[in-house]
Design a protein around this nucleic acid. Structure first.
Length: 936
RNA sequence: GCCCCUGUGGCGGAAUUGGUAGACGCGCUGGAUUCAAAAUCCAGUUCUUUCGGGAGUGGGAGUUCGAUUCUCCCCGGGGGCACCA
């Protein structure tokens, strides 16, 4: 019988389904293990060959753990809210729920086709009201809590209100944007609206004005991704920043815990540093500067309070709230002009152009609290509104940017650090001795920083402070296809929690924003005004549903709770999380934040959601381009073969991606459109129908290949189903693992798959010859046992290391060895297929049954362990080296110790001849490797 | 500019973590089989050579008996952050 993957795979897919082989229970005598994949967004393009890379790896690991006797949770679901479905709806009128359901069904088919061991009874869908009911419920919990810095814990807002009623906010230490202090009497006298405004400064989910990318022409808010060079990606219309009252999550309250928590998880160093940079902790001081003729003070953050004597001017971000207020009459025009200038520059322009120094003087002066000298107050866009306080004290003798600014505008420079004793050191290195700095003179930088903070605190004009780059997360989206907020506003615009959950998305047939630019949900007027109040019409962002889905898998059908205490106490946390590095900061940071919040409230027993994380690299594709002349000729497009473009020198060319199905020798350097391919290409788009095609001598249009993202818009999506149809799912799985280390990005290339395909047929041939089953009960020889145990040792080691490419190589070697030994013995083959079962589930299931076993190999629960006994030789041949150069070889007892080997080596006549007359300095014995004699 | 990762045959990539560099696969070259092709099988395949060897893991130094592996400098590729006070 030939190896026929399609027949085998169909059979076992059915068997697994009927017998619920992968059903996981929340109760078991076995130890638990939780393997999680980042769930996909079910896009219209379907699954492509890149998606399964991580899924295959985690599937192998899950099956491996199951065979080792663990109770493995390995679920899958869909991150089903998102922009593409909404845009599709706007274009076609198909409701996002409908297109999403279709896409999910397609994904499911494609995933099943690859033989994954997901427990589909636990499927989660973030757009299902039974799921987002709990997302809304968590939001309300966040809304109902503030962060108490004393206990380092989320605490109920009701507790805070009690404190306010008893003693005001004098003793409250919280993560807050509340600056004013107030008494209990003051609090009690406030209107509900005023009280709520204050509470908003404490709530972990709160409303604040933030800026969005607004496109007047499209009448909608755009994501950063949708804005290119200051204009909308669609249509190229201008985009401006528009202030909008939006929900935000106070993730900054958890900055320190998110940072220190990294010490206790197994993430790659690269990922940890990325998260550390994102949080961006820096230690310094906040300092208040008085302003001449004004009551307000300017607050700045500085990491170098020691340089305060060198602060000769101040710079505010153009968006700083005091700018208008401080500007004097004669400077109004200049400031207005500068504000107009910065407003015209997109964020990208501002970032790209670091060299140009710009700014404007407000006419106002602050006072240097240390030296008492006046400091002109300027505005400049090198100071960012979003970082620190949006204002700096400028120390031109210390900071390079301040120096450039002072130089350009002729502002004073005072040297405050003597670095003569520290040649070549930068000020940022925190070395040197303070000069021109009053009481700080003579101190080393580190000591000066401490003393400066002490003095600031003593004078009551500043204090030591830790600043984070991390910003609170914007939590509002002006979209339809997301979780509605469970919030209603009363007539005083005070938000109230809606406790009757879920708040379901109302049905709409138009998903565009309203004419006034309001979010699409404003169209559902009855829904908005239900119950005499006004509903929040924004929806939650994509990261809401994905921030806790791994917990729902533990108890997905629970209608009373998010998940039961029992379930979460059993599964604890994700043991292994596999997913793309593109989520390094966004999703991972937000879900860690939510998890810590739930921990504070006692819902989860662990501080971190993920114990270990593996980032799989991106599988890239080859994009095929056809060259086309920029200028049409006689109204027609002219396509030019890549090997003929020299003939068109001086004429501008552009490249158009070509659907790879038309391309011959796809992916190679010499890919081309044959006459037939050109014909298909002509019929692809009406524009190309009558175009001219300048082909080469062979009549082909040579295309240009580039490695890039696999994407629908690049026409290079390869459906795994097609590969599976040709080679089988097991071959596909093994091949994707064989491509290289799981963390590396690499281009998809089908060239090498024949090698893996051959391997599977060779494996099959160990069992079958034509129709005859070759397997015997004969006792295995020593050589056969050695071949087997070598591979067992290797596989167990590599699977733990997540090194699957080397596993596949080891299998190939084992099968080749057994073929050479003509081994068809059950004693050898049973462990071999057990070993292979995680990698090639269908084939091994078939062979397992052929060996007369019942049930599923994947539920067997006894992964083979290697026995060192079979690997030990009686004698070992050692290379003998003199000073590292191999001179001869000698055979020794395998059991010989290092000392014995050394003695025996030196006793050899041949060796004595080699070292004749020279002094032996030392003998180095590397077990099982070599003996090196160092002479001379 | 800063941070992280990375550089090995024609290609994807191995190297037990300092111990025989190039496992395994692709490709290529021979050969067997075949009327022929596909498929399959066997052998070879880092470069160089006067067939003794010699060189060799981006380049240069260093540590070591010994370096793809550790240290420093430089160059190239990828990713992240970005006027961060």
């Amino acid at each position: 019988m030939d190896y026929q993957p399609s027949a085998i795979e169909k059979k076992w897919r059915q068997f697994w389904k009927e017998n619920k082989v992968y059903k996981t229970n929340n109760e078991s005598d076995k130890p638990k293990y939780y393997v999680l994949d980042m769930f996909p967004y079910p896009s219209g393009a379907g699954l492509h060959v890149g998606h399964p890379l991580g899924y295959i790896a985690s599937d192998i690991f899950a099956r491996y753990k199951r065979l080792q006797g663990f109770n493995v949770l390995h679920p899958m679901g869909y991150d089903a809210f998102g922009l593409p479905a909404e845009q599709y709806a706007i274009q076609t009128g198909v409701h996002p729920a409908v297109s999403t359901a279709e896409n999910m069904a397609r994904y499911r088919d494609q995933l099943d086709n690859l033989g994954f061991c997901f427990d589909w009874d636990r499927q989660v869908n973030t757009s299902d009201p039974n799921y987002y009911k709990w997302t809304q419920s968590i939001f309300l919990k966040i809304f109902g809590h503030y962060y108490d810095n004393k206990t380092q814990k989320a605490t109920a807002i009701s507790d805070l209100i009690t404190i306010f009623e008893q003693e005001g906010n004098f003793n409250v230490e919280a993560a807050t944007s509340q600056e004013e202090l107030f008494t209990a009497d003051y609090w009690k006298a406030l209107s509900p609206r005023e009280q709520e405004d204050i509470l908003m400064n404490y709530r972990l989910a709160y409303r604040k004005t933030s800026y969005v990318n607004w496109c007047e022409e499209l009448g909608t808010v755009l994501a950063n991704d949708e804005v290119k060079d200051g204009v909308s990606e669609r249509g190229g219309y201008p985009v401006t920043k528009k202030p909008m009252l939006q929900w935000a999550l106070r993730i900054t309250a958890y900055a320190e815990r998110l940072l220190t928590g990294l010490d206790n998880v197994e993430f790659s160093d690269a990922l940890k540093t990325q998260q550390q940079n994102w949080i961006g902790r820096s230690q310094g001081a906040k300092v208040f500067f008085e302003i001449d003729q004004h009551d307000e003070k300017i607050e700045v953050f500085t990491t170098r309070p020691d340089t305060i004597y060198g602060a000769t001017f101040m710079v505010l971000a153009p968006e700083h709230e005091l700018v208008q207020h401080l500007t004097t009459a004669d400077n109004k025009t200049a400031i207005a002009e500068y504000l107009a200038y910065t407003n015209s520059r997109s964020e990208r322009d501002r970032m790209a152009d670091v060299k140009t120094v710009t700014g404007a003087f407000t006419g106002a002066y602050a006072v240097n609290p240390a030296s008492g000298k006046p400091m002109p107050i300027w505005i400049a866009d090198y100071v960012l509104a979003g970082y620190g306080t949006g204002a700096i004290m400028a120390v031109p003798s210390g900071d390079e940017r301040d120096a450039r600014f002072a130089e350009k505008f002729g502002l004073g420079i005072i040297q405050v650090i003597d670095q003569s004793a520290h040649e070549g050191a930068e000020i940022g290195d925190k070395v040197g001795t303070l000069i021109n700095s009053g009481e700080l003179n003579g101190l080393k930088v580190k000591a000066a920083i401490k003393k400066a903070i002490y003095i600031l605190e003593e004078k009551g004009i500043g204090e030591g402070k830790i600043n984070y780059r991390l910003r609170d997360a914007n939590f509002s989206r002006q979209r339809y296809w997301g979780e509605p907020f469970p919030i209603q506003y009363d007539k005083n615009n005070v938000p109230h929690a809606v406790t009757d959950l879920p708040v379901e998305l109302p049905k709409l047939d138009n998903f565009k924003p309203t004419k006034e630019g309001k979010a699409p949900l404003a169209r559902a007027t009855d829904w908005v005004n239900e119950g005499g109040m006004t509903r929040e019409i924004d929806t939650m962002p994509g990261f809401a549903g994905s921030s806790w889905y791994f917990l729902r898998y533990m108890d997905p059908e629970n209608m009373e709770e998010m998940f039961s205490e029992k379930a979460v106490n059993y599964w604890q946390q994700v043991d292994l999380y596999v997913g793309g590095a593109e989520h390094a900061v966004g999703h991972l940071m937000y879900s860690r934040f939510w998890h810590k919040f739930l921990y504070d409230l006692g819902f989860v027993p662990t501080k971190e959601p993920y114990k270990k994380l593996v980032n799989q690299g991106m599988l890239q594709g080859v994009i095929e381009f056809a060259y086309v002349l920029k200028e049409k000729q006689d109204g027609q497009m002219v396509f030019v073969s890549a090997d003929k473009i020299q003939e068109y020198e001086g004429q501008e060319m552009t490249q158009i991606p070509v659907l790879i199905d038309f391309v011959s020798d796809y992916g190679s350097d010499s890919s081309y459109l044959s006459a037939e391919g050109i014909e298909q290409f002509r019929n692809w788009r009406s524009d190309y129908k009558n175009a001219q095609y300048i082909t080469n001598a062979a009549g082909n249009l040579v295309t240009h290949s580039e490695v890039g993202k696999i994407s629908k818009s690049k026409y290079n999506v390869i459906n795994p189903d097609d590969v599976v149809a040709e080679y089988g799912a097991d071959c596909f799985r093994l091949y994707e693992m064989f491509l290289g280390p799981i963390e590396d990005s690499k281009p998809w290339d089908v060239k090498g798959i024949t090698g893996v395909s051959k391997f599977l047929r060779k494996l099959w041939a160990l069992f079958y010859n034509e129709d005859q089953l070759l397997v015997t009960k004969e006792k295995a020889t020593k050589a056969e046992l050695k071949a087997l145990h070598t591979v067992i040792k290797k596989i167990n080691h590599d699977v733990e290391q997540f090194s699957f490419n080397t596993c596949v190589a080891a299998f190939m070697i084992a099968v080749n060895d057994l073929r050479k030994l003509n081994c068809h013995k059950e004693e050898i083959l049973t462990p071999l297929i057990l070993l292979l079962a995680p990698f090639a589930p269908f084939t091994t299931e078939e062979l397992w049954h052929k060996l007369g076993n019942e049930g599923s190999i994947h539920a067997y629960g006894q992964y083979p362990k290697h026995d060192e006994h079979y690997l030990v030789e009686s004698t070992v041949e050692y290379p003998i080296c003199i000073n590292g150069k191999k001179k001869t070889t000698a055979t020794f007892e395998a059991t010989a110790t290092k000392d014995e080997l050394e003695k025996q080596t030196l006793a050899l006549e041949e060796v004595q001849a080699l070292i004749a007359g020279k002094t032996v300095r030392k003998v180095i014995v590397v077990p099982k490797r070599m003996v090196n004699i160092v002479v001379g």
